[in-house]
């Protein structure tokens, strides 16, 4: 049997990539096709879909104009869902920006250390990955809550009289998301910065560039691939996040992820949830393709 495979290049190749390809097909592509199918049919009364399926565009129409829903009241807001969508993108951009602003100097600092320290610090960066995301978010909750560590600390020191509202609002969600996704920003930026040849900064300085100009003209462009990777790795999951806005927002901050999550839960509207999932996927896809086109192409050619 094995002998038969040997010497047959095509079969060998199939033997190597076959299992992985099958895995992707069954567990990734197929579900997407199913979601696509569900998004075009009417909902079932107790969740799921109506059987036999009735095809409709209603789910998409509802997203762009909330008032087309059969349950819409008289004072419905047609831009309800588009607004939540926009809000998610806005939060996604804020979180991504902060992750890059905080992550870049941190990556730089780590990359400048001696090898032993560098490894130790990078382990500290990835340690949170070993802990369940949910557990970490609850841990953060216990720090930021009204009776949490942070408020108790400040109150006891008489720096503040009233506990600060650090949770159950957008601030809490943003802090939670930054906390959760900072490592995703650090890893690719660290890789870029560590590879960066620091003698180029010396050359810039030698040619009369003050530190900040040397950074903008030399180091930033040359480490841009890491920044772009960080941007994609943070923005994509954050726009669709639902655990953090759920826990840290306490139901008061609506994001596209929590909205979709609800359609498959209490709202029991799978087709609408599926439609929104696909719209989100499309948006992320377009964004990522656009970004890789515009930025990486430029930096890639520069390398």
């Amino acid at each position: 049997m094995l002998k038969y495979f040997r010497g047959k290049k095509g079969l060998q190749l199939f033997g190597l990539i076959g299992p992985g390809a099958l895995w992707m097909l069954v567990l990734f592509n197929l579900p997407v096709l199913i979601v696509m199918f569900i998004s075009f049919v009417e909902r079932g009364r107790a969740g799921g879909i109506k059987l036999p399926p009735v095809y409709t565009m209603e789910n998409y129409a509802q997203f762009f104009n909330a008032c087309t829903s059969q349950f819409a009241g008289p004072e419905c807001d047609p831009f309800l869902y588009l607004g939540i969508f926009g809000n998610s993108v806005r939060i996604g951009l804020i979180v991504t920006l902060w992750c890059i602003l905080l992550g870049y100097p941190l990556s730089y600092f780590i990359a400048k250390q001696k090898p032993i320290w560098r490894d130790a610090l990078m382990i500290l960066v990835v340690i949170p990955f070993w802990t369940n995301f949910l557990v970490r978010t609850y841990a953060l909750k216990s720090v930021l809550a009204t009776e949490g560590l942070f408020n108790t600390f400040l109150t006891n020191l008489h720096i503040i009289n009233q506990p600060l509202d650090l949770m159950f609002n957008e601030f809490g969600v943003i802090v939670g998301l930054i906390y959760g996704y900072l490592p995703f920003a650090i890893l690719p930026m660290y890789a870029s910065i560590e590879k960066f040849d620091h003698s180029l900064m010396e050359a810039a300085s030698d040619l009369g560039a003050p530190p900040w100009r040397a950074f903008l003209k030399v180091m930033l462009p040359l480490t841009m691939p890491g920044v772009v990777a960080a941007l994609v790795l943070v923005f994509v999951p954050v726009v669709g996040a639902f655990i953090t806005p759920d826990i840290m927002g306490g139901g008061k901050v609506e994001m596209i992820g929590t909205l979709i999550n609800r359609q498959f839960g209490v709202a029991r509207n799978w087709p609408f949830g599926s439609a929104m999932s696909l719209i989100l996927m499309l948006l992320v896809l377009v964004g990522v393709i656009y970004y890789f086109r515009s930025t990486t192409e430029e930096t890639r050619r520069a390398m």
């Binding site: 040849d197 003698s199 180029l200 010396e202 050359a203 810039a204 300085s205 030698d206 040619l207 009369g208 560039a209 003050p210 530190p211 040397a214 030399v218 462009p221 040359l222 930096t299 520069a302 390398m303």
Partner: peptide, 19 residues
């Protein structure tokens, strides 16, 4: 600081800006 000195250097490995 280096950037304020009236000297310039030709580096051993040239250190040209690749981008």
């Amino acid at each position: 600081s280096a950037f304020q000195r009236p000297v310039n250097t030709v580096f051993q490995q040239y250190a040209l800006f690749p981008h």
